[in-house]
């Protein structure tokens, strides 16, 4: 878990995205390793690490138990 400077030469026009939210990474990024999968993530700031774990918890509910949810599809 560490802040890393995003060093990009001025002539490099590539873009970096937060690997959790999709937001743009500018200047520096927060890097952390998932406690369970050991995957490394580059994200915009520290709060996104918490979001990552929250999402894992909530996404497990989407797939495991969708019986109570209101699924709404709209095409006419």
């Amino acid at each position: 878990m560490v802040w890393v400077d995003l060093i990009v030469p001025w002539h490099n026009t590539a873009v970096s995205y937060c690997e959790v939210t999709g937001n743009l990474i500018v200047g520096k990024y927060w890097e952390f390793t998932d406690k369970n999968t050991k995957e490394v993530y580059k994200v915009t700031d520290q709060s996104i690490e918490d979001l990552h774990y929250k999402l894992k918890k909530f996404r497990a509910k989407y797939t495991d138990d969708s019986s109570g949810e209101q699924l709404t599809s709209v095409t006419e």
Partner: peptide, 14 residues
Amino acid sequence: KVVAPAGTITCVKL
């Protein structure tokens, strides 16, 4: 918090 993974229609990649 808005989660729109890059490469989906909700967050286009260059």
